[in-house]
């Protein structure tokens, strides 16, 4: 569905590539996690996978970059918008401000897609429920708490029902239950609607529990790729500044196994 082949990208006026010869192939219906230290290139990769690189950011690219077999550079953001959704890292700037209430704010994207009213209403109600903010629907999207604002930002993109959903640290302001619920909801979308979800996160436990595949970045390069357990339990994560779950850390001190547990279930099994 999305393919990068030896893809490099330089932000305008920089010497160091932000992405350095990254090769990656993403199939429909995959749930993919991206990990990496701050500055490793997670956000840039998110922009590339959603087409904002090269369409919004200028700068140099090298290598291949295709979406459904078409060269990404030949498509435009307007066409991509209905198919690929991007949730940004910082919730504070994602509110369009073009509308008054949370409900209307979520509608903004749907209006741009030209959906009929009845369809919009159904989608908005569904999105509000998915991120659990039904009770905020008639409030102003500006006078809410940090976590509530992040939920609004996510709901606004979810309602657009893109085939590919890219999320850049979407749970940074969410409470623990909210984070788990968000992952559960995304997982459900992947299995029922066969959408593709790509998610950059520091919260390793939830990546480990829900993702099909994890990609580790370091200094703009792809450093590891594979099943969550294989990637996240390795010592390399410590060197990359990603860290490991406390399940892995505890088990590392207690067990001699080839592959350390990374989730609660795995840890429970290993330590029983």
């Amino acid at each position: 569905m999305i393919e990068l082949k030896k893809f490099s990208y330089w932000y305008p006026g920089t010497e160091q590539p932000a992405l350095d010869r990254v090769s990656l192939s993403i199939a429909e219906g995959e749930f993919i996690g991206i990990v990496g230290a701050n500055g490793a290139g997670k956000s840039t990769l998110c922009y590339a996978l959603s087409g904002f690189v090269p369409h919004f950011y200028n700068g140099e690219t090298e290598g291949q970059h295709t979406f459904n077999g078409q060269d990404m550079a030949s498509l435009d953001l307007g066409q991509l918008a209905g198919q690929v959704g991007l949730v940004f890292q910082n919730p504070f700037n994602q509110i369009s401000g073009a509308r008054f209430t949370v409900r209307e704010e979520i509608a903004f994207g749907l209006e741009n897609l030209g959906l009929p009213q009845s369809e919009m209403r159904a989608r908005i109600d569904e999105a509000l429920e998915l991120v659990n903010i039904q009770d905020l629907a008639e409030r102003s999207p500006f006078s809410v708490s940090g976590g509530q604002q992040q939920r609004i930002a996510i709901a606004s993109i979810l309602a657009m029902q893109p085939r590919v959903l890219v999320l850049d640290e979407p749970t940074s302001q969410l409470d623990p239950d909210g984070t788990r619920d968000m992952f559960t909801a995304l997982n459900k979308l992947v299995s029922t609607r066969k959408i593709t979800v790509i998610l950059a996160e520091h919260k390793l436990e939830w990546l480990a529990t829900f993702c099909d595949r994890v990609i580790a970045l370091g200094g703009g390069k792809l450093r590891a790729e594979g099943s969550p357990q294989a990637v996240l339990s390795s010592e390399q994560m410590l060197r990359l500044g990603v860290g490991r779950t406390q399940y892995s850390e505890a088990a590392a001190r207690l067990l001699r196994t080839k592959q350390l547990p990374v989730t609660l279930e795995q840890a429970k099994k290993a330590l029983k």
């Binding site: 959603s50 918008a81 940004f88 994207g109 741009n112 897609l113 030209g114 606004s156 657009m160």
Partner: peptide, 12 residues
């Protein structure tokens, strides 16, 4: 842009 602002569709 992420909210399809430049989408070619006729807005509703």
């Amino acid at each position: 842009e992420a909210r399809a602002f430049s989408s070619p569709a006729r807005k509703t």
